[in-house]
Design a protein around this nucleic acid. Structure first.
Length: 610
DNA sequence: GCGGATCAC
DNA sequence: TATGGTGATCCGC
């Protein structure tokens, strides 16, 4: 029942036996250290026992290792709690939960759609493959892309146990001759564009899942060209290989979830089809390790394994206790795994679906406050560039730090208005950093980052809007190429979005109006959040910390903000400021949630629960 | 709404 | 010597 190599937590056969005091369970830790991509192709012939030993010894004693060890201990404790809960449940009458579970399964079954052919296309060792095109001699040696941590490696490297996500010095221990190449993302994007051009012929509305992955719905294509899906995919893969020299693998199934799993089945340069019949799907899922399903990672795998759920088939006999052990969402997710259900509507990802913009960098431990401040300044400037590029401002600003111990902390704040300029980002982030420095004496960081969320678009369509008569439809036409003018009140997914976009614009207008009254200036370019006034008059701004209006250039602005922040009263002032200038009202409308179609359209990528 | 945790790539 | 960056979601509080 157990997957070879996967450590077994106290499972039901062993009952509730804790480890002897003072002894560590190194098996789970070693498994954790193996990294998240164990399930990737090319690892079958590898002696995982030996590999994990090498990784373990290379890592032992490091701060990274200690942190992983702590996480492993915490998870072990959590699993003990799960097992105790399970033991209690087994003494109770679960017939009610059983009936509820069966009702849900029956309901899901009704939503099963076997009429669509969805495929998932996945490039094989993509970054490495692209590099090999430029330098064919690399095909014959183990090679990986990435600096400190590997992003991709070719199949020769995988034979040594090397895999993505691995620290390069560890990879070198496993494979001393490993060739390391720096990442060249533009090159990969260009190649991906070539591949996508071909995929578009099979489904113009295909969905890119990442730079090297895509979902297509080829139902219409197969219908129009009178070919069966396997033949069409065979054909498409051959064309991609011929015309772009990149090999891809594909999965063919009734929905995206199974297609994704299937694309990994015959990697590299292969394809796998799960035929659109209930029996075939159920049989495929029955023996499929839960870990193979998107959304089940190392942690959930161990939690499920502890109660005896290793394959999707194991879900059924435990169905009555899943809600109580892992929560409702988890139960629903697992029910769909058991039945092999997933979404069938494949659509281009709209850029406007973005919910956050972030930047972060790792560096050698820094404890010096001035140096940290310089890092923050740099992060703020990077963030400004990203916000300009993506055309957003953020209503919420989040500071992320990683301590030298690898512990991660985040602190967020809602500035009085949406921010995008480096000066503002810095000014609002610094108090959070200062506060952390107070909370953690002698704080040393190895990473610092910023994230903006609660985004406000600064796209032209929205900004031109300002001062122009409200014309939602024309705005919509600008933002959506294929938008259709509708005169009725029917709300389709597209319209729902447009309506929400209008609301965003309206909100922005309201905010700006309020601001222009308060600060007596008119930010008509969208590039400024109050720091600079257009025209020939001297630049006018207000300090985001003390709120005092000033006339100054950037240097003086920075000095003043630094001065304000260095005062003892920083926190109080900031709190007062935000009270005086409340952020967006709580009732503010959010972007539409995914249009709910059927039960099988759950796009829940994650479902976590304690 | 915030902060921690998990996951995918 | 040494273990990434970006985006998203879920949960408990």
């Amino acid at each position: 029942m157990a997957t070879p190599g996967v450590p077994v937590d106290n499972n039901e056969d062993k009952k509730d036996q804790s480890e002897p005091a003072g002894e560590e369970d190194f098996e789970t830790l070693k498994y954790q250290l193996l990294g998240p991509s164990l399930t990737k192709a090319g690892q079958d012939a590898v002696d995982q026992q030996k590999v994990s030993e090498i990784i373990y010894n290379a890592s032992k004693g490091s701060k990274f290792f200690n942190h992983e060890q702590e996480r492993d201990r915490n998870l072990t404790v959590k699993i003990e709690r799960i097992l105790k809960a399970k033991a209690r449940l087994e003494k109770l009458d679960l017939s009610h939960d059983l009936r509820r579970a069966d009702e849900y399964l029956a309901e899901l079954e009704l939503s099963r759609d076997l009429s669509q052919f969805v495929i998932h296309v996945d490039c094989d060792a993509f970054f490495a493959a692209v590099e090999e095109l430029d330098r064919p001699e690399l095909k014959t040696v183990p090679m990986a892309v990435g600096k400190g941590v590997l992003t991709t490696c070719n199949y020769l490297a995988r034979k040594f146990g090397v895999r993505s996500g691995m620290a390069s010095f560890v990879a070198k221990k496993l494979c001393p001759h490993l060739v390391l190449l720096p990442q060249n993302y533009e090159k990969y994007t260009a190649k991906a564009t070539e591949i996508r051009a071909i995929m578009a012929e099979y489904d113009p509305l295909f969905e890119t899942a990442s730079v090297d992955e895509a979902y297509l719905n080829i139902t219409a294509y197969c219908d129009e060209n009178q070919v069966d899906p396997e033949e069409a995919v065979q054909n498409m893969r051959a064309r991609i290989l011929e015309e772009t020299k990149v090999s891809v693998s594909a999965g063919i199934a009734a929905n995206a979830k199974i297609a994704k799993i299937a694309s990994n089945q015959n990697k590299p340069n292969g394809q796998f089809c799960v035929v659109n019949k209930r029996e075939a799907i159920m049989e495929f899922m029955r023996t499929l390790p839960v870990r193979k399903v998107n959304g089940v990672g190392r942690v959930f795998e161990r939690e499920l394994g502890s109660i005896g759920v290793v394959t999707c088939g194991d879900i059924y006999p435990r169905r009555a206790m899943l809600t109580k052990l892992f929560g409702e969402k988890a139960f629903q997710f697992l029910a769909q795994c058991y039945l092999g259900l997933g979404r069938t509507n494949i659509q281009p990802i709209e850029a406007s679906e973005r919910k956050s913009v972030s930047t972060e960098t790792t560096f050698n431990e820094i404890g010096d406050k001035e140096e940290l401040r310089a890092k923050l300044r740099w992060a703020a400037e990077e963030m400004e560039k990203d916000l300009v590029r993506t055309q957003f401002k953020g209503r919420t600003l989040c500071l992320k730090v990683k301590l030298h111990t690898f512990e991660v902390l985040t602190r967020q704040t809602a500035p009085p208005r949406a921010v995008s300029q480096a000066n503002d980002l810095y000014a609002f982030a610094l108090p959070m950093l200062v506060k952390l420095e107070k909370e953690i004496p002698g704080m040393k960081l190895r990473l610092l980052g910023l994230r903006c969320s609660n985004l406000v678009s600064t796209k032209k369509a929205g900004i031109n809007f300002f001062g122009v008569t409200t014309q939602p439809r024309s705005s919509a036409a600008q933002t959506t190429e294929t938008s259709v003018q509708k005169d009725d009140h029917e709300i389709g997914p597209e319209e729902a979005f447009e309506s929400s976009a209008r609301q965003e614009v309206q909100d922005e207008m309201n905010d700006l109006e309020q601001l222009s009254q308060e600060a007596a200036h008119f930010p008509d370019t969208g590039e400024s959040s109050g720091a600079v006034n257009p025209g020939s008059s001297p630049a006018q701004w207000e300090c985001p910390i003390c709120g005092r209006p000033q006339v100054a250039d950037d240097r003086i602005f920075n000095d003043h903000v630094d001065f304000c922040l260095s005062r003892q009263t920083i926190r109080e002032v900031v709190e007062d400021t935000s009270q005086e200038e409340p952020s967006a009202p709580a009732s503010r409308k959010r972007k539409p949630s995914q249009p709910s179609t059927a039960n099988n359209d759950t796009r829940q990528k994650r479902l976590f629960f304690q």
